[in-house]
Design a protein around this nucleic acid. Structure first.
Lengths: 157, 157
DNA sequence: TTGATAATGGAAACCATTACCAATAGGAGA
DNA sequence: TCTCCTATTGGTAATGGTTTCCATTATCAA
């Protein structure tokens, strides 16, 4: 009987065992970091955060684990155009906090928005169904991003 | 009076002059390559293609020019997750051939689709308006991609 | 408790992209 | 058409995020 009140084993344990993966300290530490922030962390960001509590965990493990988490579907990987990948937990323990991104091409700032999400998701689901059938794809994920200049960058020029 | 029948100066000349950029051999060659394909070329792909006709043109120029074309808005830059950027002409001389992408996470194959495009674009325009107002952004572009397993990769496992 | 093997970590390799700078060429004005 | 200013170019070297390699360690089913 799983616990989800913060005192028992984390809610993601099942995901691991179910796939035949071992639940290790580094993996728990990385999930811990990701679950405690709403920022878009790079691999190095995760490394630095994890490093505070577990200095022995190496950068290689961070990359490997993040890849694994993306494969499992626990984590989303994004590219905001600054040359490094960003990672976000796909959903929190209390449920999904689904959002899309607004990226400033001037300063690289990323804004999460949840407005219009319902309409977008509704259309996406419909599109997914159609595409799955037409191209015989098993669609697992989608990406929507808007690009532009934020207020600060607009006034600079 | 501009020519668009292939015998006169290319339709993109105005774009350059208007922005104060010079129209050079390398730039024309690169645009030429991009306008003759519907594939998603990497910088190296473009380099190799350009190199056949103009062996003197260097890879550095390819990168610089592609960046410029993206800035001007003549070219879109994509990331399909294979570690290299892909470039596509944003619209052909005959008009736009707007499409979105379906990416196989198994083999990396990318399928262009135009189905649902109208609905998607309609919703995106509405969303853009709302986001522009709420966050005071000047939105210039958007990205939609679906990820999944293609038929071949599904049957492999 | 034990053993098979999945997972780890440090260093080195990888590789797409960028920085640097001397040489070249576009094109507005004469 | 010619000249000059300066944007552009191209080769090389550097950059830096990510991956590879492999000997060591730790997980967990039996």
């Amino acid at each position: 009987m799983p616990f989800r009140d913060g005192t028992g084993p984390p809610w993601w344990q099942g995901k691991f065992r179910g796939c035949g993966y071992r639940l290790t300290i580094p993996r728990e530490a990385i999930l811990g970091v990701l679950s405690k922030t709403s920022k878009h962390l790079s691999a190095e960001d995760v490394y630095l955060a994890v490093h505070k509590a577990y200095p022995a965990i190496g950068l290689t493990t961070i990359y490997r684990t993040l890849d694994l988490l993306v494969q499992i579907g626990l984590v989303f990987k994004f590219d905001f155009g600054d040359g490094r990948a960003r990672y976000e937990l796909s959903e929190g323990p209390k449920g999904a906090s689904h959002h899309h991104h607004l990226v400033c091409t001037g300063c690289g700032r990323v804004i999460d928005y949840t407005d219009f999400i319902d309409e977008e998701v509704e259309l996406l689901n419909r599109t997914e169904k159609g595409l799955s059938k037409k191209f015989n794809f098993r669609i697992t994920n989608h990406l929507i991003q808007f690009y532009g200049l934020c207020d600060r960058c607009r006034s600079k020029k």
